[in-house]
Design a protein around this nucleic acid. Structure first.
Lengths: 213, 213
DNA sequence: CAGCATCCGCTTTGATACTG
DNA sequence: CAGTATCAAAGCGGATGCTG
């Protein structure tokens, strides 16, 4: 990107991460940790491979990411955020927060990857009853199942488990609506969500403002 | 901008405010409040006028800004942020914070506008001794003088005052370095800063972590 | 003068094909 | 797997002209 050439920290920041795709690459690395080139491509549907290569080089030049040779037997290149890159988390959170109202409609024909749920869910959910026994909710939406692990805190990660305390199946929009509290469980069910198991787990982790209201 | 077409709130946010210049337009409106077209042009050195017009229309379409006919006798169009636009403040703050390390060097030949100081200064400074009498520091850098009004809180705005309790003159880089604590007063002076008046005022408003250290 | 619209050359991006 | 190479399309920057 051409520099704005302004002595302003916002403009200087945008000189580094204002290019198209750049912040989405950072999103991928924040969610998934050190990743291979092809994993990044998979998490960034629509990116042209030359652009991904360009951006990775630029981010490396700016000290935002580092390239790392994975140890044998994998023997592949890994891209990881530097501490400076990790510190973009606040920017991504602010952006994601601001973008949430734009997620209310159904996903339509937009691309979706299950792991994109990790960021918003982990940001908004917390365990309000840490003294209760730990529990696991399996979320089935998109291409791979995700686990919501509740036990003092809430962790979201890809995976499956033998006997989850609850399973939720539905569109990403319904899942997000349910857990962020925009949608009552009954309303979500009416629109096609399938929820099996312990329904109290939803209220246990929902944002407090919602759970209270 | 072409949409990313991803069902992810970061991507959706970037679909709206990810274009070149867009966030800098929001910066101007956040700092200056409702502004005329030409004021925006002045605060955005380097923008092409057709791009400014394009972006303003897009931002209006997305509900981020609104156009308003100023009352007579001014009789001009004012552009102002909607509440939705105001809520981008957190994004701008996060970006500005992240960009601060990129401001350490001198400004070089980069463009500068005095009012750009308002955002970072107001964000980082506070009055640690609200029981002391109010005070005013006049900052002279860039094209117009700025006032730092201290009295319980800290306000920064364009203007002059007859008898300021202190005046600081120097490059934007020195001013920022001094108030954010990156530069000791003595060191700033050695590099060309001129400070007249009550030196304690600097410590009174500096970020606490710095003042304590 | 404020607030654009138009035109044109240049740069960036996107799609696809190909390679060590 | 991790890119390069190529080329068309879109976006951007700069100059200029138009309109109330």
């Amino acid at each position: 990107m051409r520099t704005y050439d302004q002595y302003c920290s916002v403009a200087r920041a945008l000189d580094v991460i204002g290019d198209r795709w750049t912040l989405l690459i950072v999103r991928e690395l924040l969610i998934r940790g050190p990743s291979r080139y092809t994993d990044l491509q998979y998490g960034l549907p629509g990116i042209a491979t030359n652009l991904l290569a360009d951006r990775l080089r630029e981010l490396e030049d700016h000290g935002v990411i580092a390239r790392e040779a994975a140890p044998p037997p994998v023997a592949t290149t890994l891209f990881r955020l530097t501490p400076r890159g990790e510190s973009l988390k606040g920017v991504l959170e602010a952006l994601g927060q601001w973008g949430r109202p734009l997620m209310v409609g159904p996903s339509g024909d937009a691309e979706f990857r299950s792991h994109w749920l990790i960021f918003p869910l982990q940001l908004h959910l917390s365990d309000h009853e840490p003294d209760l026994p730990p529990a696991v909710v399996e979320i089935r939406t998109g291409e791979q199942p995700m686990l919501l692990e509740i036990g003092g805190s809430v962790r979201v990660r890809p995976g499956t488990v033998r006997n989850p305390d609850a399973t939720v199946t539905g569109t990403p929009s319904l899942i997000l609506g349910l857990f962020t509290g925009a949608l009552e469980l009954a309303a979500a069910r009416a629109r096609g969500l399938v929820f099996d198991g312990d329904e109290d787990l939803v209220r246990r982790v929902q944002p407090l403002a919602v759970a209270a209201g």
